[in-house]
Design a protein around this nucleic acid. Structure first.
Ligand code: FES
Ligand code: FES
Lengths: 141, 141
DNA sequence: CGATAAAAAGATTTTTTTGTCCTTTATTAA
DNA sequence: TTAATAAAGGACAAAAAAATCTTTTTATCG
């Protein structure tokens, strides 16, 4: 489904959403330990997310990564598009070109419903809402 | 979603379902050309499918690949499991262990519905039914 | 039998993904 | 203003996936 890059990215963003704000930042090393993912690799992923404006960071002592209010308005689809590209949720499951109802492959109508259902969900729930749900229901990240 | 191996495999099986039977076999070279996929790689994929009993083949002149009546009773999920492993449709979308309703990740309920919807579809439609639909509606493979 | 056709098998290469390491730059605080 | 800290950036390494090439086996037919 998602690449590891993307999985790590989503988890990191949600972790930041739950555990940080403008006044409480966290460094890569701690994030990587808490999520049990490779440090250096996660560093790269966070770099990309930062460049895309999906997360925030400050260098130097006391610095680290965090989510601003703006960042929290984004949704999971934004992260997926940033890390795995837009194709992942839009391309034909069989790899054929021009996926559409007019030009379907044998699995199109079966896959389409699912794919777009998921895409809708990922798009219409902000990071912030998700974070609240995670806190409320003590969901693992 | 699916690996290329799996995409090629599904397409090849459907191609065989539509274009072959016990008396009309087709060789890898032709299949690869028709589907526009790499020959040698497809050869490997077909080998695996054959070993798993999902397709049939005969060596030598006049030989080639085809689908037997038995083969046609299988479904797409069988192919996916054979080529991408059972994990693909059952594992957590975020890569966390033990995906279940009792032990959900933040995307579990959103992803679960989609994943299992798709899995259901792939499981409850035989290759044969799909092939008939492809012929009837002239769907591309 | 011997030539030929086609899949099966094995080995190898290329590309992509994932993961590590080291240096540079920005920030803070003593 | 210097030492320490943390992200950013670049180069490199390992592993996995995708693709290719070569040889072997099996079957058919003249
Ligand atoms: S054409 Fe294949 S999923 Fe739409
Ligand atoms: S736990 Fe993540 S999808 Fe079920």
């Amino acid at each position: 489904m998602f690449s590891k890059t993307c999985k790590y990215g989503i988890r990191a963003v949600l972790f930041l959403a739950v555990n940080t704000d403008k006044n409480k930042k966290i460094g890569v090393i701690e994030i990587a330990e808490r999520l049990e993912v490779p440090r250096h690799f996660l560093g790269k992923v966070l770099q990309v997310l930062k460049k895309e404006g999906l997360i925030s960071s400050i260098k130097g002592p006391g610095g680290g990564f965090y989510l601003s209010k703006e960042n929290r308005k984004a949704n999971i689809e934004d992260i997926v598009e940033c890390l795995d590209g837009p194709s992942l949720l839009n391309a034909c499951v069989l790899g054929l070109p021009n996926c559409s109802d007019e030009n379907p492959c044998p699995l199109h109508f079966q896959a389409y419903a699912c794919r777009h259902g998921l895409q809708y969900q990922l798009r219409h729930q902000s990071i912030d809402e998700l974070a609240r749900k995670i806190r409320r229901e003590e969901i693992r990240i």
